[in-house]
């Protein structure tokens, strides 16, 4: 059970809070205002802040996206759609990739789900448009020519699948087993 509180003590405490609040206001009366002149001034946002989405490239300059559908699968508002396809060299890519920014809530789940670090959110948040249809971004609008936040990662070097490099040429891989080898 809580101890019974003295009424006077409570009133005193409340008064103290009031005074403290007014004091803060009073102090700010004499400070310089810090209003930023947006859009003349663009405040630099942290690199990890989440806004407009891009598709990055791996260090070789190839598209990182392998169209695995994990981002579209995880997207809570279903704003990502794509069609996976295969390049002649066996590399998987998105033959089209569409993000409807009118729906996007910039939650960043797509970025988290992306196994190839292809899809990344950028601090670029100024995406307002008059026509809502222009908020639908296609692959050519999304694809950039750099690696974004992690420029060194190349999914295919780890994947262990032939699209880039032959069998056994990826990281941590042994040469392909020779089925006919005489070695025991």
């Amino acid at each position: 059970m809580e101890p019974r509180r003295n009424f006077l003590a409570a009133a005193w405490e409340g008064l103290g809070e009031l005074v403290r609040g007014f004091a803060t206001t009073f102090i700010h009366l004499f400070r310089r205002p810090i209003t930023e002149a947006y859009p003349e001034y663009h405040r630099p946002l942290p690199e990890r802040s989440r806004a407009r989405i891009i598709l990055t490239r791996d260090p070789d300059g190839d598209e990182r996206c392998v169209a695995c559908y994990l981002c579209s699968g995880v997207c809570p508002v279903s704003c990502i759609s794509m069609q996976s396809s295969q390049r002649e060299d066996g590399r998987r890519f998105a033959s089209w990739f569409r993000i409807n920014f009118a729906r996007c809530i910039y939650c960043g789940l797509c970025e988290e789900a992306c196994p190839t670090l292809a899809i990344q959110l950028t601090p670029h948040f100024e995406t307002c448009q008059y026509d809502i249809l222009t908020l639908v971004a296609e692959k050519e609008d999304l694809l950039v020519d750099h690696g974004g936040k992690n420029r060194d990662y190349n999914f295919y070097r780890h994947a262990g699948v032939t699209a880039v490099g032959g069998k056994g040429e990826h990281l941590q891989e042994a040469k392909p087993v020779n089925r006919r080898s005489n070695l025991p």
Binding site: V66, C68, Y69, L70, G73, R92, P115, T116, F155, H158, A159, G160, V161, A163
Partner: peptide, 12 residues
Amino acid sequence: HPHDCPICDAGG
């Protein structure tokens, strides 16, 4: 086992 679920058609 390779690290290739994203490009594997059995993924999922």
